[in-house]
Amino acid sequence: MVSIVIPVKDNWEYTELCLKSIFKYTDSPYEVILVDNGSRNPLLEKLLKLKNRNPQVDLKYIRSEVNLGFAGGCNRGIELSRGDFVVILNNDTIVSPGWLSGLLRIFEKEPKMGITGPRSNYVSGPQLIRDCPLHFKNPSDVDLEKLSLYSESFKRENEGQYVKQDFVIGLCMCIKKEVIEAIGGFDERFYPGNFEDDDFCLRTKLAGFEIAMACDTFIYHFGEKTFEGERFDYKRTLLENLMRFMEKWNIDQVNEKGDLYRKVLRRRLIPTENLIYPLFKDHPYILLEWNRDEEEVLSYLVKHFRLKSLPVILTTKEDPEKVMMKTQELLGNLNLLDDPNINITILKGETSQVLNEFKGKFYLFRKLKSENSKAHEGSHVIQVFV
């Protein structure tokens, strides 16, 4: 049996849709453990009504009067779990036909497998499906038939495929109970969320287990609904938990060394290689060398609001006016042209010069191809959006 643990903080309409999709599309024995993580209005009454309409479902409810954070909520649910596997699932997800069997199948083939995760429309790293055609604004906008048809087509194209990874994201993690018995639950210092999944995966790997992405399994994800509902500052929380992660693992300098700790930092925010994360200061920036690849990176950053309100500096050897027009077009296509939170500055010149001027203040930037590149004299600065 599989125990599906869902931490919830308000947002019942998303939770109800998630639960209904589980009831409809889960093809393996399971129990659902819903952790009410300090919702303003307890969810028990609504859950009982849903249970009465689905009496066949093994459904448990536990409530905390305060928000324990994602890690704390997961741990309370894990304590009640009876399954040989525990699935940690975000409440703003919609599962698809055969999702659970797709995650479990890998364990049958790989005796050392400890965690599996799906592909999704809204997730960082290699799990992201870049060309996913599905986009639902809210639960009332969801077309389950459309989602089902897409997921079944996706499964046929990728049937049986999986890729071993160092990490999977916490929107959906299928964990062998043996892993939890070996390393414990999620580290609750990462409050309210971010990096607890990285930390858990890191400990899993260090304990000798493997992690894989199920390439044929799709789960729809709305994304960050608890953060929005609670009005948490996503950027601030991300940075604070980054510091906690670095302090826990004694990372005093971030570079391109190929160890697990730095793999977390390199891949955490955007799905691209060759990113390095220096120790950030009080006022960090994002620095990108502008080229065709960076258009895609910038698009991802603003589209998913992962680093909303962090200043972005684009360095270019092109005409800054042309880059400004391309940037405006990109933001216009995303309906973000007038967003006051987006701050982009274009600098003409070599990246090395900018690095010297802003030394130690970058949160992330592209690694230079040559550390000996010469600075361009007379850099021209254009403020695009302030």
Rank of each mutant, 00 (worst) to 15 (best):
M1F: 15
M1W: 15
V2I: 13
S3L: 12
I6D: 03
D10Y: 06
Y14K: 04
L19S: 11
K20G: 13
S21I: 14
S21D: 12
S21N: 11
Y25H: 13
E31D: 08
D36I: 00
D36F: 00
D36S: 04
P42R: 02
P42Q: 00
P42K: 06
K46Y: 10
K46Q: 15
K46D: 11
L47V: 06
L50A: 08
K51F: 05
N54C: 05
R63C: 04
V66L: 07
F70C: 06
G72Q: 05
G72T: 07
G73C: 09
G77Y: 10
E79P: 07
D84N: 13
V87M: 08
N90S: 07
L103V: 02
K109M: 09
P111N: 01
K112A: 04
G114T: 00
I115S: 00
G117M: 00
P118E: 02
R119F: 03
R119M: 12
Q127F: 01
L128Y: 05
L128I: 03
L128N: 02
I129W: 03
I129F: 05
D131M: 01
C132N: 06
H135L: 10
N138K: 07
P139I: 01
S148R: 01
S148P: 01
S148D: 04
S148K: 07
S151W: 08
Q161N: 15
Q165M: 12
Q165F: 10
D166N: 15
G170S: 11
I175W: 04
K177T: 08
E181Y: 14
E181C: 10
E181G: 11
G184I: 07
D187N: 12
P192H: 11
N194W: 10
L202Y: 09
R203H: 13
K205V: 11
F209H: 07
I211Q: 00
C215R: 14
C215E: 15
D216C: 06
F218P: 04
E224G: 08
T226L: 09
F227D: 03
E228D: 10
R236F: 11
L238A: 06
N241F: 01
R244E: 02
F245M: 02
E247A: 07
I251P: 07
D252T: 15
D252L: 13
K257A: 15
G258D: 15
D259I: 14
R267I: 01
R268E: 02
R268P: 02
T272L: 01
E273V: 02
I276Y: 14
Y277R: 12
L279M: 08
L279F: 12
F280S: 09
H283D: 15
L287Q: 05
E289W: 11
N291G: 12
E295W: 05
E296K: 14
E296P: 01
S299E: 09
V302Q: 10
F305T: 12
L307M: 13
K308M: 12
K308V: 08
S309N: 14
L310S: 01
L310I: 13
P311D: 00
T315H: 00
E321T: 11
M325W: 12
L331D: 06
L336R: 13
N341I: 13
I344V: 09
G349P: 04
E357F: 13
K361D: 09
S370M: 09
N372D: 15
K374C: 08
H376G: 13
G378H: 10
V381D: 04
